[in-house]
Design a protein around this nucleic acid. Structure first.
Lengths: 350, 350
DNA sequence: TTGGGTAACGCAAACGTTTTCGTGTTAAGA
DNA sequence: TCTTAACACGAAAACGTTTGCGTTACCCAA
């Protein structure tokens, strides 16, 4: 077992100084052609690679991005990571992942672990618990220490940082409008409680679409689900609630669901009640994931382009990092990028 | 913007030496009660946290685990990561993720990026391309440099390292036996080409089940799919191939698919051909993911317990890391842990 | 007074780099 | 022969820690 070779070892072996070795490897003109060749050959032979940690310490930057997300077993988030990793790698950065599991405490702990030198900046989406408690001091402190943050999807305006979001309102509105032009008269929405920012925004889009098309809003068509981590019990409850929705509103002919799970569950319940998709009931969901694509009938969805969000977030962060490098005190003006959604039509609509 | 405070700054501010500060913070008895209190108070005030990078350099270990997986937008892999992150965090480690995207080159590059000091050890699942080329030198070299690897799911025996696998043969066999006891007489298998180790093993389980139950093997019932990254075109092709399978074997009454996608696609095609699930066709898939659970009908599946695999892998790796610490030259005996699969019965079987 | 012991602290090395600033040698120019 | 400049290299600092050991200063006993 041969441990990794260091400059010092090469220096000793070749009977030159460490600095000579370092310079030779970086093709410094200070070093004679002779020694340069000798050193490089030796380094190649022993497969020398500079130690990242030492470089990080010296350069005071790690070339690593910290990602904090609520969960990873989730199509949207893993798509985002894919995007981040793609551009990060392309630009010479690594990616280190922390999971908040929707918990405030874990979010704080994870950020503290990483903020002490391990990374150069954060890309994150806020945990539900944090959104509920509205305690954002850990973000503020991190930023105050000079570590940039880019937030995506679940963001709060009061934090001074770059943000990448989806136009949830517009996306939802388009979806509902699609249902309207497809002939739906009684469109229900299955959404989350309002503290989940995206749930709230998508509900808003629903409302706007109805209003613009002068469709009378019926409160009983709005189903707000308590959006916890989904255990099997919660799933049962979800079905029950949706069933109640259909039973107390026999005229429902369109459903807009703020996520895939709500949509497929709605379809499942609707079928049980004898409704045909898309003939007597049309369904559109937010989030274009594996369920939408492969379940039967496949779902018409609002695609969020998770990967693109990740790519954009990574670019924003790295740009800022490399800007800080040249110009120590950059004027602090932050960008909010909106990624357009697309409506992907499949079998659950006419 | 106040940068992170260091020992040196505290030392200067309090007019003591750096070592005194360090010792005071670590409650060394060398330091008087007085100064200790003073230092600790000051450190608390300025929210001092030791710099991870400096510690890593000094201790020659990073307390970070590198994960290399083929893709992250995948239920199984993200479950595994969840498990790894869980025990890693519990034991004071961070997790840094690299994606090979099933490519040999990206796997090598990612490993090289991380192996130069950034991490203490790897947990990985081999890329398909690597399995095809059978070029494992990067694993060997990493191990030779004293960096332990734990492989999961897609492993090769010739690499000296700990492994966590699922008993693919047994799991597949159980699934097929379930179909047999449920009365299926003509059981097809939809699997991958043989170079994907898990595909091969699951096929083997299928064969064993048939043999033990003295069912004559029909070659035409075995459909081997070229398992690339799935574009929409490939999806079409998949449907066509499955359709052909059904059409040329009208008697098929059971299908065992080696992954969820093959299973739901089979169901889709079967329905189109007028088959009822599970009445005239029963289906079981490997991998218990979101599709199995939420598509209609929900799928009976072989659960791999991805999270448990991740947890076990992380424990194995960290155990080895912390063993190396005390006992420099550990006898090199490696463990292969088999995680039992479970058959989860849902609506796609009787 | 001297010797030894102890409490409280500082020095310096080490981890592996990069880089600035010498420094010694050689050869060319005056 | 002396000066000077180019050339090739080395010493040392710096990044932020931890830690073994040396160094004070003081106290108490002999």
């Amino acid at each position: 077992m041969k441990r990794k070779v260091t400059l010092k070892q090469i220096a000793k072996e070749l009977d030159v100084s460490i600095s000579t070795v370092s310079k030779a490897l970086r093709n410094s003109i200070e070093i004679s052609e002779d020694t340069r060749q000798k050193v490089q050959a030796f380094a190649k032979l022993y497969n020398y690679r500079p130690n990242n940690i030492a470089l990080s310490l010296k350069n005071r930057k790690t070339k690593t991005i910290g990602i904090i997300i609520p969960e990873i077993v989730h199509h949207f988030f893993s798509k985002v990571i894919t995007g981040i990793e793609l551009v990060a790698n392309k630009r010479g950065y690594n990616v280190i992942v922390g999971l908040s599991n929707e918990s405030f405490d874990k979010e704080v702990i994870n950020m503290e672990m990483l903020a002490n030198g391990s990374i150069d900046g954060f890309i994150l989406s806020i945990a539900k618990e944090t959104l509920q408690q509205q305690d954002y001091h850990h973000f503020i402190e991190t930023i105050n220490q000079g570590m940039p943050i880019v937030m995506f999807d679940r963001v709060v305006n009061e934090i001074p940082c770059d943000k990448v979001i989806v136009d949830d309102v517009k996306g939802a509105k388009h979806a509902v409008e699609k249902l309207i032009t497809n002939g739906c008269k009684n469109i229900a929405i299955i959404t989350t409680r309002d503290y989940v920012s995206v749930g709230k925004l998508r509900t808003q889009g629903y409302l706007e679409a109805l209003e613009e098309h002068k469709i009378h809003l019926k409160g009983s068509l709005i189903l707000k689900i308590e959006d916890k981590l989904l255990s099997d019990d919660d799933l049962d409850k979800l079905e029950k609630e949706i069933e109640l929705l259909f039973k107390s509103n026999k005229l429902i002919d369109g459903v807009f669901a703020v996520n895939e799970l709500y949509a497929v569950t709605a379809i499942k319940v609707a079928r049980k009640l004898g409704l045909e998709i898309p003939k007597s009931l049309q369904v559109i969901s937010f989030t274009d994931g594996v369920l939408s694509k492969h379940s039967t009938p496949s779902l018409t969805t609002v695609s969020q382009h998770g990967q693109k969000i990740g790519e954009k977030a990574a670019d924003l962060l790295i740009n800022r990092l490399e800007l800080d490098e040249v110009d120590e005190e950059v004027e602090e003006v932050y960008e909010t990028v909106v990624i357009e959604t697309d409506l992907i039509e499949r079998e659950s609509t006419k």
